[in-house]
Amino acid sequence: MSLESVPPKYAQLVQTLQRRIEAGHYPPGSLLPSENQLIQEFGVSRPTVVAALRVLREQGWIESQQGKGRFVRGRPALASVEQARPGHAYLTTPETGLPGELLEAGAVAVPNRVAALLDLPPKSKAFLRRRLVSRGDEPSEIVSLWLPLDLSEGTDLTSAQPLAQGARDHVQARKGVRFDHVVEQITARMPSTEEVKQLGMPKNTPVLDVYAAVRDPGGRPLAVLAVVLPADRHELEDAYPLS
């Protein structure tokens, strides 16, 4: 779960409590303030407090003991590990920070897989913004952002200029929606002739397909980010706790 950009209230509370834990204000083994105490101190609603405590528990900062309350565990060992999930990176990084060129922007027929992820009928149209990203002056990956047509209206996604915001922030600000969570899938396949040409890669080298399906808090599909990565140039790494 990302806590970057201009975070919602629950994320601000998470960050405040994390800083207090790191500073020793809430030392390991101590009892965290109750929900009612946090509500009164920070002037937020109970759902906001509950959401923040859930994030802290899932990330390993605190633990719950039934009938006793929530106790501080301290800074998790993995808290300093950067989660290099491709979908999150491309959704939050401004295009101005990813040099490249715009390949396509407009309404096109949606592929079957993307249609299923967006919950759209087969052969319908969706908005596509596709960029060829370069790293070290060489083409590195192809990034495609798919949106239902109504969510693309009134945005700058048709502009040939790189976005100064991440796609998540831009769409949320313009359309009043909230990107709540991502379901990410990674598969391998051989590249198309066009991809070989665009990426300047050998024909016999496979590519990794990353599909990041973005949903709102209710589970409604909002966007799909599809990234094509040459397998000989990229390595995907993740870190997670064992519980």
Rank of each mutant, 00 (worst) to 15 (best):
E4N: 01
P8V: 09
Q15H: 05
T16F: 02
R20K: 08
E22L: 06
E22N: 02
A23W: 01
G24L: 00
P28T: 00
G29F: 05
G29W: 06
G29I: 02
P33Y: 12
N36A: 15
Q37A: 13
L38G: 08
F42P: 02
G43S: 10
V44H: 04
S45Q: 12
R46H: 10
R46F: 04
R46D: 04
A51I: 01
L56E: 06
E58K: 07
G60H: 03
W61I: 01
E63H: 13
S64K: 12
S64Q: 12
Q66C: 03
G67Y: 08
G67N: 04
V72Q: 08
A77W: 15
S80N: 13
S80I: 12
V81H: 11
Q83I: 15
Q83P: 00
P86Q: 05
Y90N: 07
T93A: 06
T93V: 12
P94Q: 07
P94E: 02
E95N: 00
G97Q: 11
L102H: 00
A107R: 03
N112S: 15
V114C: 09
A115V: 02
P121M: 04
P122N: 08
K123I: 01
K123N: 15
K125W: 06
R129Q: 01
R130N: 02
S134N: 11
R135K: 11
G136V: 09
G136P: 08
S140G: 10
S140H: 13
E141A: 15
L147T: 06
L149T: 06
D150Y: 12
L151G: 02
S152H: 10
S152A: 15
G154E: 03
D156N: 08
D156M: 05
S159M: 05
A160P: 01
A160F: 12
Q161P: 00
P162E: 02
A164V: 14
A167V: 12
R168E: 13
D169E: 15
V171T: 02
Q172T: 03
K175D: 07
K175P: 03
K175T: 08
G176P: 09
V177S: 05
V182C: 05
I186K: 03
E194A: 11
V196T: 14
K197M: 12
Q198S: 09
K203R: 14
T205H: 09
V207Y: 05
V207D: 07
A212R: 10
A212M: 08
D216C: 08
G218Y: 01
G218L: 08
P221E: 03
A223Q: 09
V224K: 05
A231V: 07
D232V: 08
Y240P: 00
Y240M: 10
Y240Q: 07
Y240G: 09
